[in-house]
Amino acid sequence: MSSSATGWINWLVSPGIFTYSFMQNAWLSGTIIAIVCGVAGFFTMLRGSAFAAHALPKIGFAGAAGAVWLSVNPLWGLSVFAVGGALGIGWLGKGARRDVIIGLILAFGLGTGALFLSFNNEYAAGAIALLFGQIVGVSTGEVIDTAVLAALCLALLVVLYRPLLFASVAPDNAEARGVSLRSIDIWFLVVIGIATAVTVPIVGALLSFSLLVGPAAAASYLTHRPSHAMMLSVAIALLSLWIGVALAYDTGWPVGFFVATLVVIAYAVARITAQWRVSRLSRVAPAE
């Protein structure tokens, strides 16, 4: 490589961004979680489950705080609490308002998180880092854990795909055709729980839901085919995450901030584009 090219690259991205092993881990798990969140986000948007997607990472955070106190791997605490929260929401959600149940379980989860944080003897930096996410903290072992959980998540989505789509779009018909709305719902929440658990370490508990909400909502304005929407959603999630990780590396600011901002920009651009297309069509139509 010529020296001028190296200079260019260094100007564009800080040195070490691709060579440090912790950064390679960050790229790898970032890519994995963007794919999972892009696909799971499609159904989150379709089902109007933004609140659940927002609540489960925070509930997971409580679990991570507990894991830090007990000195076990935070990813375990995250997974157990996020999936447990999902099951709780699904189980209690019957015969009650869904948003109320989510709010209550979220509040109790956070209360438990506060308790665990107070048990930690010193200032729980490890747990607080999970609120904001960090790119430097991903070990190679965690990349493997992330990959395994993500594969599980995608496999569940592949199996559930058709009944989940059916139950999300036309629940009454799906039920009449023998789809159990309740078990589909619980399985879907479990998927969100797992997706959450893998996303939190990098993006942070406060903002990991943005990857589940934003890219799919943006994609839904640009296409009306489910497969295209899912691919677009994954693409937007990937771009937001990659750029977010690069900027976080450069600035040392939290990844969540960059990812959230990029996702919101993508949504705004998609919505404006769609509106512009509609208004252009309606201008053309009378002339025909």
């Binding site: 943005s210 990812v259 959230a260």
Partner: peptide, 15 residues
């Protein structure tokens, strides 16, 4: 979705 995205934007800044 609107709540989710407004929350994303503001919380992004907040974080």
């Amino acid at each position: 979705v609107a709540t989710g995205l407004v929350l994303t934007a503001v919380l992004g800044l907040g974080s």
